[in-house]
Nucleic acid binder design. Structure first.
Length: 407
RNA sequence: GCACAGGUGGGUGAGUGGUUAAAGCCAACAGACUGUAAAUCUGUCCCUCCUAGCGAGGUACGAAGGUUCGAAUCCUUCCCUGUGCA
């Protein structure tokens, strides 16, 4: 594997086992070999909120996200680059993926104007004006140096009429072509491994497992994104056009934007049929524990979602017995663990009563511990999904286990 | 003892005659959260009843009494708290 790495390749995807529509495999990136299906914690500004990198390693996070828009605004791409890219800056030696800022076209809709050329944002930090295009989003992402970078797309709002969905999808396709063109012309070999003395300050701290230590060079990989709103036909067309442009991996974007869950599933399922089976498929922004199991089962290889981290900070915890709103008065005297079936450090050590107390007291530890548990639960869930696939079992059985409210 | 200042719903604190069951904040309780403008946001928060509503009663701004069509708001007395002077 190390040999392949040093030959300057980008990502490679190897499917090891198929079970129904579900696939288990390895996605090899410059910094790490990722077991799929994989859940990717979101660390928008270069931090998975509340959890330091060493803890993410302990939890078994294989790859985390950063966001181009946020990192461009602060601390700035140049700063990050000086530290050896995002890996060096945040001291993360496993894989990284940066989102292009396309989602901010959707989420910051009050603060932006979109045209064929790109999107103009008013910074949510200081109101200053910034222009994002497929070209400069990719340029910024080359500077950030993540293993996987995303084409600049327009995440279509919901609801939208067909005309709007079509126009948005077509522009995303044109933007995808521009993203790729710019990437092909400007991609550089990015250093990986020991980027700087900064990156591995502690002697012998490198954890075992799926992490590469060899020095060498490799290139980033650019993934395309399918849009098309809630229309199966437009999704099909978007998939075909994006595949025709040609990427080493494909994402399904524009979902979980307020539409009914059943519709999300329908669109995912139909869109997957139009994506090449031998390339990684990334469903962006999804979902609940039940959903990540369900979509892995449908053949999705990668997912990311802010839900586990954000919900944790807001006192909503996912457990094998259902959702626990740890702020509820009913847990004030509860000596039991958050999730009796969870082996994470939080569940092994702390009572529900204490977790509730920390939350009620507004202690930072509440956010930290809650996030560690939720991420642990998500990552563990994916581990179980991979295991089920490797055994050739329908991982569907895992679904629904968590949706029942506690008796 | 005298002189000021003040006593408002779980807390704090607005309100100085009528859209005031009484702002705001906090606490409490419940809910939301899906490529992170999110340690955020929403709702409830005196009691009872129902046809569950900008619904009907009741109780409430230290206590008692009074003025007034109407009082948390004005008057009298009393109780209590703080500060100052003796």
């Amino acid at each position: 594997m190390a040999l392949l790495q040093s030959l300057g390749m980008s990502v490679s995807f190897h499917i090891e086992k198929i079970c129904g529509k579900a696939r288990m495999g390895q996605l090899t990136t410059p910094h790490a070999e990722i077991e799929t299906p994989v859940f990717m914690p979101v660390g928008t500004v270069g931090s998975v909120k509340g959890v330091p990198q060493e803890t993410l390693e302990d939890l078994g996070a294989q790859i985390i996200l950063g966001n181009t828009y946020h990192l461009y605004l602060r601390p700035g791409v140049e700063t990050v680059r000086k530290f050896g890219g995002l890996h060096g800056f945040i001291s993360w030696r496993r894989a990284l993926l940066t989102d292009s800022g396309g989602f901010q076209v959707f989420s910051l809709n009050e603060l932006r104007k979109v045209s064929e050329e790109g999107a103009t944002f008013r910074s949510h930090l200081d109101g200053s004006s910034h222009f994002f295009s497929p070209e400069n989003s990719v340029a910024a992402q080359i500077g950030l140096g993540a293993d996987i970078i995303m084409a600049f797309d327009e995440c279509t709002e919901y609801p939208a009429d067909r005309e709007r969905m079509r126009a948005s999808m077509e522009m995303t396709a044109r933007w995808a072509a521009r993203s790729k063109k710019y990437f092909e012309e400007h991609k550089t070999e990015v250093p990986w491994g020991a980027v700087s003395s900064f990156q591995f300050p502690v002697e012998g701290s490198e954890p075992a497992g799926n992490c590469k230590l060899e020095t060498g060079n490799s290139t980033q990989s650019l993934f395309g994104i399918v849009q098309g709103g809630m229309d199966r036909e437009l999704r099909r067309e978007s998939a075909e056009r994006t595949v025709e442009i040609g990427f080493p991996g494909y994402a399904i974007g524009g979902l979980s934007v307020g539409e009914p869950r059943e519709l999300t599933r329908e669109i995912v399922e139909s869109t997957l049929e139009h994506l090449p089976a031998d390339k990684p498929r990334y469903l962006m922004g999804v979902g609940t524990p039940e959903e990540i199991v369900e979509y892995a089962n449908l053949g999705v290889d990668m997912m990311d979602c802010v839900l586990p981290t954000r919900a944790a900070r807001h006192g909503l915890l996912f457990t094998s017995e259902g959702r626990v709103s740890i702020k509820q008065a009913r847990y004030a005297q509860d000596p039991g663990p958050l999730d009796p079936n969870c082996a994470c450090r939080v569940c092994r050590r702390y009572s529900r009563a204490y977790l509730r107390h920390l939350y009620a007291s507004n202690e930072i530890a509440a956010q930290v511990l809650n996030t560690i548990h939720n991420l642990s639960f998500y990552l563990d869930t994916m581990r179980r999904v991979r295991h089920a696939i490797s055994l050739g079992e329908e991982s569907r059985f895992l679904s629904g286990v968590w949706s029942q409210p506690k008796p």
